[in-house]
Design a protein around this nucleic acid. Structure first.
Lengths: 198, 198
DNA sequence: TTTCAAATTAACCAACTGGTCAACTTCCCA
DNA sequence: TGGGAAGTTGACCAGTTGGTTAATTTGAAA
Protein backbone atom coordinates (compact mmCIF):
# COMPACT_ATOMS: atom_id res chain seq x y z
CA UNK A 1 0.00 0.00 0.00
CA UNK A 2 2.99 2.30 0.33
CA UNK A 3 3.31 5.12 2.83
CA UNK A 4 0.70 7.69 3.75
CA UNK A 5 0.84 11.50 3.84
CA UNK A 6 -1.02 14.64 4.86
CA UNK A 7 0.62 16.69 2.12
CA UNK A 8 -2.47 16.69 -0.07
CA UNK A 9 -4.61 18.21 2.66
CA UNK A 10 -1.93 20.71 3.55
CA UNK A 11 -1.81 21.82 -0.07
CA UNK A 12 -5.57 22.26 -0.16
CA UNK A 13 -5.55 24.27 3.05
CA UNK A 14 -2.70 26.46 1.82
CA UNK A 15 -4.49 27.07 -1.49
CA UNK A 16 -7.68 28.16 0.24
CA UNK A 17 -5.84 30.51 2.57
CA UNK A 18 -3.71 32.11 -0.10
CA UNK A 19 -6.51 32.63 -2.62
CA UNK A 20 -8.78 34.02 0.05
CA UNK A 21 -6.17 36.37 1.46
CA UNK A 22 -4.96 37.45 -1.97
CA UNK A 23 -6.15 36.26 -5.35
CA UNK A 24 -5.77 33.37 -7.75
CA UNK A 25 -3.30 35.31 -9.85
CA UNK A 26 -1.20 36.35 -6.87
CA UNK A 27 -1.00 32.76 -5.63
CA UNK A 28 1.85 30.86 -7.25
CA UNK A 29 2.60 27.17 -7.02
CA UNK A 30 5.82 28.04 -5.20
CA UNK A 31 3.92 30.05 -2.59
CA UNK A 32 1.46 27.24 -2.07
CA UNK A 33 4.25 24.71 -1.65
CA UNK A 34 6.12 26.91 0.78
CA UNK A 35 3.04 27.52 2.89
CA UNK A 36 2.16 23.83 2.89
CA UNK A 37 5.72 22.71 3.59
CA UNK A 38 5.70 20.58 0.47
CA UNK A 39 8.23 20.33 -2.33
CA UNK A 40 7.08 21.10 -5.82
CA UNK A 41 7.65 17.57 -6.98
CA UNK A 42 5.16 16.40 -4.37
CA UNK A 43 2.68 19.03 -5.49
CA UNK A 44 2.62 17.51 -8.94
CA UNK A 45 2.51 14.05 -7.48
CA UNK A 46 -0.87 14.90 -5.94
CA UNK A 47 -2.30 17.36 -8.45
CA UNK A 48 -2.02 17.56 -12.20
CA UNK A 49 -1.97 21.34 -12.24
CA UNK A 50 -2.61 24.49 -10.27
CA UNK A 51 -6.14 24.59 -11.66
CA UNK A 52 -6.73 21.06 -10.43
CA UNK A 53 -5.69 22.01 -6.90
CA UNK A 54 -7.92 25.07 -7.03
CA UNK A 55 -10.82 22.86 -8.04
CA UNK A 56 -10.12 20.49 -5.16
CA UNK A 57 -9.72 23.37 -2.72
CA UNK A 58 -13.01 24.98 -3.74
CA UNK A 59 -14.75 21.63 -3.43
CA UNK A 60 -13.32 21.02 0.00
CA UNK A 61 -14.17 24.49 1.27
CA UNK A 62 -17.73 24.26 0.05
CA UNK A 63 -18.26 20.80 1.50
CA UNK A 64 -17.17 22.12 4.88
CA UNK A 65 -19.29 25.24 4.60
CA UNK A 66 -22.37 23.28 3.62
CA UNK A 67 -22.34 21.48 6.93
CA UNK A 68 -22.77 24.78 8.73
CA UNK A 69 -25.39 26.00 6.28
CA UNK A 70 -27.44 22.84 6.66
CA UNK A 71 -27.65 23.51 10.37
CA UNK A 72 -28.36 27.23 10.01
CA UNK A 73 -31.09 26.62 7.44
CA UNK A 74 -32.67 23.73 9.28
CA UNK A 75 -36.44 23.73 8.67
CA UNK A 76 -36.83 23.55 12.45
CA UNK A 77 -35.68 27.19 12.72
CA UNK A 78 -38.19 29.97 11.88
CA UNK A 79 -37.49 30.93 8.25
CA UNK A 80 -36.62 34.61 8.69
CA UNK A 81 -34.40 33.66 11.60
CA UNK A 82 -32.50 31.27 9.30
CA UNK A 83 -31.49 34.10 7.02
CA UNK A 84 -30.57 36.39 9.91
CA UNK A 85 -28.56 33.63 11.50
CA UNK A 86 -26.75 33.07 8.21
CA UNK A 87 -25.79 36.73 8.09
CA UNK A 88 -24.65 36.72 11.70
CA UNK A 89 -22.56 33.72 10.79
CA UNK A 90 -20.99 35.56 7.87
CA UNK A 91 -20.04 38.35 10.20
CA UNK A 92 -18.58 36.05 12.79
CA UNK A 93 -16.56 34.20 10.18
CA UNK A 94 -15.18 37.46 8.84
CA UNK A 95 -14.27 38.51 12.37
CA UNK A 96 -12.25 35.35 12.83
CA UNK A 97 -10.50 35.87 9.52
CA UNK A 98 -9.79 39.44 10.49
CA UNK A 99 -8.13 38.35 13.71
CA UNK A 100 -6.01 35.88 11.80
CA UNK A 101 -5.08 37.92 8.73
CA UNK A 102 -5.63 41.48 9.88
CA UNK A 103 -7.98 41.89 6.95
CA UNK A 104 -11.60 41.40 6.02
CA UNK A 105 -11.47 38.79 3.26
CA UNK A 106 -15.06 38.62 2.01
CA UNK A 107 -16.50 35.71 0.05
CA UNK A 108 -13.84 33.64 -1.73
CA UNK A 109 -16.27 32.18 -4.25
CA UNK A 110 -17.39 35.60 -5.26
CA UNK A 111 -13.91 37.15 -5.45
CA UNK A 112 -12.53 34.19 -7.32
CA UNK A 113 -15.50 34.19 -9.65
CA UNK A 114 -14.98 37.83 -10.52
CA UNK A 115 -11.33 37.13 -11.27
CA UNK A 116 -11.33 33.87 -13.20
CA UNK A 117 -14.75 33.45 -14.79
CA UNK A 118 -13.64 34.81 -18.16
CA UNK A 119 -10.27 33.08 -17.99
CA UNK A 120 -10.71 29.53 -16.70
CA UNK A 121 -13.94 27.83 -17.62
CA UNK A 122 -13.48 24.81 -15.39
CA UNK A 123 -13.14 27.01 -12.33
CA UNK A 124 -16.02 29.14 -13.52
CA UNK A 125 -18.29 26.08 -13.84
CA UNK A 126 -17.41 24.93 -10.35
CA UNK A 127 -18.07 28.34 -8.83
CA UNK A 128 -21.33 28.64 -10.71
CA UNK A 129 -22.47 25.34 -9.30
CA UNK A 130 -21.67 26.40 -5.74
CA UNK A 131 -23.45 29.73 -6.05
CA UNK A 132 -26.47 27.97 -7.55
CA UNK A 133 -26.59 25.68 -4.56
CA UNK A 134 -26.14 28.52 -2.10
CA UNK A 135 -29.04 30.52 -3.40
CA UNK A 136 -31.37 27.58 -2.76
CA UNK A 137 -30.93 28.03 0.97
CA UNK A 138 -32.31 31.54 0.70
CA UNK A 139 -35.01 30.47 -1.69
CA UNK A 140 -36.53 27.80 0.51
CA UNK A 141 -36.30 29.97 3.62
CA UNK A 142 -38.07 32.76 1.75
CA UNK A 143 -40.77 30.41 0.56
CA UNK A 144 -41.32 29.17 4.09
CA UNK A 145 -41.45 32.73 5.39
CA UNK A 146 -44.01 33.64 2.78
CA UNK A 147 -46.12 30.58 3.64
CA UNK A 148 -46.30 31.71 7.23
CA UNK A 149 -47.01 35.28 6.12
CA UNK A 150 -44.02 36.90 7.80
CA UNK A 151 -42.58 38.59 4.72
CA UNK A 152 -43.66 40.23 1.50
CA UNK A 153 -45.19 38.02 -1.26
CA UNK A 154 -43.01 38.55 -4.30
CA UNK A 155 -41.58 35.74 -6.40
CA UNK A 156 -39.40 33.75 -3.99
CA UNK A 157 -36.68 33.08 -6.54
CA UNK A 158 -36.43 36.77 -7.40
CA UNK A 159 -36.25 37.74 -3.74
CA UNK A 160 -33.61 35.12 -3.09
CA UNK A 161 -31.49 36.49 -5.90
CA UNK A 162 -31.81 40.01 -4.57
CA UNK A 163 -30.83 38.98 -1.06
CA UNK A 164 -27.99 36.94 -2.45
CA UNK A 165 -26.63 39.67 -4.70
CA UNK A 166 -26.97 42.12 -1.82
CA UNK A 167 -25.03 39.93 0.60
CA UNK A 168 -22.24 39.40 -1.88
CA UNK A 169 -22.02 43.07 -2.66
CA UNK A 170 -21.81 43.85 1.04
CA UNK A 171 -19.07 41.27 1.60
CA UNK A 172 -17.08 42.72 -1.26
CA UNK A 173 -17.35 46.20 0.18
CA UNK A 174 -16.24 44.92 3.56
CA UNK A 175 -13.21 43.41 1.80
CA UNK A 176 -12.44 46.51 -0.20
CA UNK A 177 -12.75 48.84 2.78
CA UNK A 178 -11.25 46.30 5.15
CA UNK A 179 -14.13 47.23 7.42
CA UNK A 180 -16.11 44.72 9.46
CA UNK A 181 -18.58 47.49 10.32
CA UNK A 182 -19.98 47.28 6.79
CA UNK A 183 -21.47 43.93 7.73
CA UNK A 184 -23.57 45.44 10.50
CA UNK A 185 -26.31 46.45 8.14
CA UNK A 186 -26.75 42.91 6.88
CA UNK A 187 -29.83 42.15 8.92
CA UNK A 188 -31.55 45.51 8.59
CA UNK A 189 -30.89 45.45 4.84
CA UNK A 190 -32.39 41.99 4.46
CA UNK A 191 -35.43 43.08 6.42
CA UNK A 192 -35.95 45.99 4.04
CA UNK A 193 -35.62 43.77 0.97
CA UNK A 194 -37.88 41.05 2.33
CA UNK A 195 -40.40 43.43 3.88
CA UNK A 196 -40.24 41.59 7.18
CA UNK A 197 -43.38 42.21 9.15
CA UNK A 198 -43.61 43.09 12.83
CA UNK B 1 8.78 70.45 -27.99
CA UNK B 2 9.61 67.15 -29.62
CA UNK B 3 7.25 64.81 -31.43
CA UNK B 4 3.77 63.77 -30.34
CA UNK B 5 2.23 60.33 -29.96
CA UNK B 6 -1.00 58.46 -29.29
CA UNK B 7 0.82 55.58 -27.62
CA UNK B 8 -0.15 56.65 -24.13
CA UNK B 9 -3.85 56.59 -24.96
CA UNK B 10 -3.50 53.30 -26.80
CA UNK B 11 -1.87 51.79 -23.74
CA UNK B 12 -4.68 53.02 -21.52
CA UNK B 13 -7.31 51.64 -23.87
CA UNK B 14 -5.55 48.28 -24.10
CA UNK B 15 -5.25 48.08 -20.33
CA UNK B 16 -8.95 48.74 -19.81
CA UNK B 17 -9.94 46.18 -22.39
CA UNK B 18 -7.64 43.45 -21.15
CA UNK B 19 -8.46 43.86 -17.47
CA UNK B 20 -12.15 44.00 -18.20
CA UNK B 21 -12.08 40.96 -20.47
CA UNK B 22 -9.79 39.00 -18.16
CA UNK B 23 -8.25 40.10 -14.90
CA UNK B 24 -5.41 42.17 -13.56
CA UNK B 25 -3.31 39.09 -12.92
CA UNK B 26 -3.91 37.66 -16.37
CA UNK B 27 -2.91 40.93 -18.02
CA UNK B 28 0.84 41.18 -18.52
CA UNK B 29 2.84 44.16 -19.67
CA UNK B 30 3.75 42.23 -22.81
CA UNK B 31 0.08 41.61 -23.60
CA UNK B 32 -0.75 45.26 -23.09
CA UNK B 33 2.08 46.35 -25.36
CA UNK B 34 1.12 43.90 -28.06
CA UNK B 35 -2.53 44.97 -27.99
CA UNK B 36 -1.57 48.64 -28.06
CA UNK B 37 1.06 48.16 -30.77
CA UNK B 38 3.69 49.69 -28.50
CA UNK B 39 7.16 48.44 -27.63
CA UNK B 40 7.97 47.79 -24.00
CA UNK B 41 10.52 50.54 -23.92
CA UNK B 42 7.78 53.01 -24.86
CA UNK B 43 5.53 51.60 -22.20
CA UNK B 44 8.05 52.53 -19.53
CA UNK B 45 8.63 55.87 -21.21
CA UNK B 46 5.01 56.77 -20.45
CA UNK B 47 4.36 54.85 -17.24
CA UNK B 48 6.56 54.06 -14.29
CA UNK B 49 4.99 50.66 -13.72
CA UNK B 50 2.10 48.40 -14.54
CA UNK B 51 0.30 49.65 -11.42
CA UNK B 52 0.71 53.22 -12.63
CA UNK B 53 -0.91 52.39 -15.96
CA UNK B 54 -3.74 50.62 -14.17
CA UNK B 55 -4.29 53.70 -12.06
CA UNK B 56 -4.36 55.92 -15.15
CA UNK B 57 -6.67 53.48 -16.96
CA UNK B 58 -9.14 53.36 -14.07
CA UNK B 59 -9.10 57.13 -13.83
CA UNK B 60 -9.72 57.54 -17.53
CA UNK B 61 -12.52 54.98 -17.59
CA UNK B 62 -14.27 56.57 -14.65
CA UNK B 63 -13.95 60.09 -16.05
CA UNK B 64 -15.64 58.91 -19.23
CA UNK B 65 -18.34 57.03 -17.38
CA UNK B 66 -19.13 59.98 -15.14
CA UNK B 67 -20.13 62.04 -18.13
CA UNK B 68 -22.87 59.54 -18.89
CA UNK B 69 -23.91 59.26 -15.26
CA UNK B 70 -24.19 63.01 -14.87
CA UNK B 71 -26.68 63.03 -17.71
CA UNK B 72 -28.60 60.00 -16.49
CA UNK B 73 -28.86 61.36 -12.96
CA UNK B 74 -29.75 64.88 -14.01
CA UNK B 75 -32.09 66.44 -11.41
CA UNK B 76 -34.36 67.29 -14.33
CA UNK B 77 -35.26 63.61 -14.67
CA UNK B 78 -37.80 62.11 -12.20
CA UNK B 79 -35.72 60.41 -9.47
CA UNK B 80 -36.94 56.83 -9.80
CA UNK B 81 -36.58 57.12 -13.54
CA UNK B 82 -32.92 58.08 -13.04
CA UNK B 83 -32.16 54.81 -11.35
CA UNK B 84 -34.10 52.78 -13.89
CA UNK B 85 -32.36 54.59 -16.71
CA UNK B 86 -29.01 53.84 -15.10
CA UNK B 87 -29.85 50.15 -15.01
CA UNK B 88 -31.04 50.17 -18.60
CA UNK B 89 -27.74 51.82 -19.45
CA UNK B 90 -25.82 49.06 -17.67
CA UNK B 91 -27.64 46.51 -19.70
CA UNK B 92 -27.05 48.28 -22.97
CA UNK B 93 -23.36 48.68 -22.21
CA UNK B 94 -23.06 44.99 -21.40
CA UNK B 95 -24.82 44.15 -24.66
CA UNK B 96 -22.27 46.14 -26.60
CA UNK B 97 -19.42 44.44 -24.78
CA UNK B 98 -21.02 41.10 -25.47
CA UNK B 99 -21.15 41.80 -29.17
CA UNK B 100 -17.50 42.81 -29.13
CA UNK B 101 -16.03 40.16 -26.84
CA UNK B 102 -18.61 37.39 -26.97
CA UNK B 103 -18.83 37.65 -23.20
CA UNK B 104 -20.67 39.52 -20.49
CA UNK B 105 -17.92 41.40 -18.68
CA UNK B 106 -19.72 42.94 -15.70
CA UNK B 107 -18.37 45.87 -13.70
CA UNK B 108 -14.58 46.29 -14.01
CA UNK B 109 -14.29 48.31 -10.80
CA UNK B 110 -16.01 45.61 -8.88
CA UNK B 111 -14.11 42.69 -10.42
CA UNK B 112 -10.80 44.45 -10.07
CA UNK B 113 -11.62 45.42 -6.51
CA UNK B 114 -12.35 41.84 -5.56
CA UNK B 115 -9.04 40.76 -7.06
CA UNK B 116 -6.57 43.39 -5.94
CA UNK B 117 -7.91 45.02 -2.80
CA UNK B 118 -5.86 42.85 -0.47
CA UNK B 119 -2.80 42.97 -2.71
CA UNK B 120 -2.29 46.51 -4.06
CA UNK B 121 -3.34 49.29 -1.76
CA UNK B 122 -2.94 52.09 -4.26
CA UNK B 123 -5.34 50.40 -6.66
CA UNK B 124 -7.65 49.61 -3.77
CA UNK B 125 -7.77 53.25 -2.70
CA UNK B 126 -8.55 54.40 -6.21
CA UNK B 127 -11.35 51.86 -6.61
CA UNK B 128 -12.75 52.75 -3.19
CA UNK B 129 -12.90 56.37 -4.20
CA UNK B 130 -14.78 55.59 -7.41
CA UNK B 131 -17.32 53.37 -5.70
CA UNK B 132 -17.85 56.03 -3.04
CA UNK B 133 -18.59 58.54 -5.75
CA UNK B 134 -20.86 56.17 -7.62
CA UNK B 135 -23.10 55.48 -4.67
CA UNK B 136 -23.81 59.18 -4.31
CA UNK B 137 -25.76 59.12 -7.55
CA UNK B 138 -28.14 56.57 -6.06
CA UNK B 139 -28.24 58.36 -2.74
CA UNK B 140 -29.38 61.70 -4.09
CA UNK B 141 -31.89 60.11 -6.47
CA UNK B 142 -33.34 58.15 -3.56
CA UNK B 143 -33.56 61.25 -1.41
CA UNK B 144 -35.37 63.09 -4.17
CA UNK B 145 -37.72 60.17 -4.67
CA UNK B 146 -38.49 60.11 -0.98
CA UNK B 147 -39.11 63.87 -0.95
CA UNK B 148 -41.74 63.45 -3.63
CA UNK B 149 -43.19 60.44 -1.82
CA UNK B 150 -42.72 57.95 -4.64
CA UNK B 151 -40.71 55.36 -2.67
CA UNK B 152 -40.41 53.92 0.82
CA UNK B 153 -39.02 56.16 3.60
CA UNK B 154 -36.00 54.32 4.97
CA UNK B 155 -32.59 55.89 5.51
CA UNK B 156 -31.52 57.03 2.03
CA UNK B 157 -27.88 56.08 2.52
CA UNK B 158 -28.83 52.58 3.61
CA UNK B 159 -31.17 52.14 0.65
CA UNK B 160 -28.52 53.41 -1.73
CA UNK B 161 -26.04 50.87 -0.40
CA UNK B 162 -28.53 48.06 -0.82
CA UNK B 163 -29.35 49.07 -4.38
CA UNK B 164 -25.67 49.44 -5.11
CA UNK B 165 -24.64 46.10 -3.64
CA UNK B 166 -27.54 44.48 -5.46
CA UNK B 167 -26.56 45.93 -8.82
CA UNK B 168 -22.98 44.84 -8.42
CA UNK B 169 -23.98 41.36 -7.38
CA UNK B 170 -26.22 41.10 -10.41
CA UNK B 171 -23.47 42.28 -12.76
CA UNK B 172 -21.11 39.72 -11.32
CA UNK B 173 -23.62 36.94 -11.85
CA UNK B 174 -24.13 38.07 -15.42
CA UNK B 175 -20.36 37.84 -15.87
CA UNK B 176 -20.06 34.45 -14.22
CA UNK B 177 -22.94 32.94 -16.17
CA UNK B 178 -22.08 34.89 -19.30
CA UNK B 179 -25.78 35.64 -19.44
CA UNK B 180 -27.23 39.02 -20.37
CA UNK B 181 -30.65 37.77 -19.29
CA UNK B 182 -29.62 38.06 -15.67
CA UNK B 183 -29.72 41.83 -16.09
CA UNK B 184 -33.41 41.78 -17.00
CA UNK B 185 -34.48 41.75 -13.39
CA UNK B 186 -32.56 44.91 -12.60
CA UNK B 187 -35.52 47.23 -12.67
CA UNK B 188 -38.02 44.94 -10.97
CA UNK B 189 -35.46 44.18 -8.26
CA UNK B 190 -34.80 47.84 -7.63
CA UNK B 191 -38.54 48.47 -7.38
CA UNK B 192 -38.84 45.78 -4.73
CA UNK B 193 -35.95 47.19 -2.71
CA UNK B 194 -37.13 50.77 -2.96
CA UNK B 195 -40.80 49.99 -2.46
CA UNK B 196 -41.71 52.00 -5.55
CA UNK B 197 -45.32 53.11 -5.36
CA UNK B 198 -47.88 52.91 -8.16
C1' DT C 1 11.31 -9.37 7.51
C1' DT C 2 10.61 -8.55 3.10
C1' DT C 3 8.27 -6.13 -0.52
C1' DC C 4 6.79 -2.60 -3.38
C1' DA C 5 3.40 1.04 -3.94
C1' DA C 6 3.27 5.52 -2.55
C1' DA C 7 5.59 9.68 -1.09
C1' DT C 8 9.63 12.73 -1.18
C1' DT C 9 13.35 15.23 -3.01
C1' DA C 10 16.40 18.33 -5.63
C1' DA C 11 17.85 19.52 -9.76
C1' DC C 12 16.18 21.02 -13.97
C1' DC C 13 13.41 23.39 -17.87
C1' DA C 14 11.67 26.84 -21.26
C1' DA C 15 8.69 30.51 -21.24
C1' DC C 16 7.37 34.52 -19.23
C1' DT C 17 7.41 38.22 -15.60
C1' DG C 18 8.07 43.38 -14.72
C1' DG C 19 11.53 46.41 -15.66
C1' DT C 20 16.06 48.86 -17.73
C1' DC C 21 18.88 51.17 -21.00
C1' DA C 22 21.54 53.45 -24.52
C1' DA C 23 21.22 54.35 -29.10
C1' DC C 24 18.33 56.10 -32.55
C1' DT C 25 14.45 58.56 -35.06
C1' DT C 26 11.05 61.88 -35.51
C1' DC C 27 9.05 66.27 -35.95
C1' DC C 28 7.39 70.60 -33.30
C1' DC C 29 8.71 75.20 -32.97
C1' DA C 30 11.83 79.20 -32.76
C1' DT D 1 15.99 75.24 -41.67
C1' DG D 2 18.13 73.33 -37.78
C1' DG D 3 18.25 72.39 -32.67
C1' DG D 4 16.55 69.67 -29.22
C1' DA D 5 12.77 67.72 -26.65
C1' DA D 6 9.95 63.84 -26.99
C1' DG D 7 9.03 59.33 -28.78
C1' DT D 8 10.76 54.73 -30.46
C1' DT D 9 13.37 50.63 -30.58
C1' DG D 10 15.39 46.10 -29.55
C1' DA D 11 18.50 43.98 -26.87
C1' DC D 12 19.07 42.87 -22.29
C1' DC D 13 18.30 41.61 -17.16
C1' DA D 14 17.44 38.79 -12.99
C1' DG D 15 13.74 36.63 -10.91
C1' DT D 16 9.54 33.93 -11.25
C1' DT D 17 6.20 31.19 -13.58
C1' DG D 18 3.94 26.45 -14.06
C1' DG D 19 5.60 22.11 -14.78
C1' DT D 20 8.97 17.69 -15.35
C1' DT D 21 12.05 14.02 -14.04
C1' DA D 22 14.67 10.26 -12.23
C1' DA D 23 16.52 8.80 -8.19
C1' DT D 24 15.56 7.94 -3.46
C1' DT D 25 13.18 7.12 0.98
C1' DT D 26 9.48 5.50 3.54
C1' DG D 27 6.23 2.53 5.93
C1' DA D 28 1.80 -0.41 5.58
C1' DA D 29 0.69 -4.93 4.86
C1' DA D 30 1.69 -9.74 3.38
Amino acid sequence: MGRTSTAKDRLIDAMIELIWAGSYGSTSVDHICERAGVKKGSFYHFFESKTELALAAIDHGWTEHRKELDQIFSPVVPPVERIMHCFRNFRQEQEELFEKHGRVLGCPIHSLGAEVSTVDERLRDKLQEILSQFIRYYESAIRDAQAQGSIVTHDAMALARIVFAYSEGLLLHARMWNDLGRLDEFESGAKIILGVKG
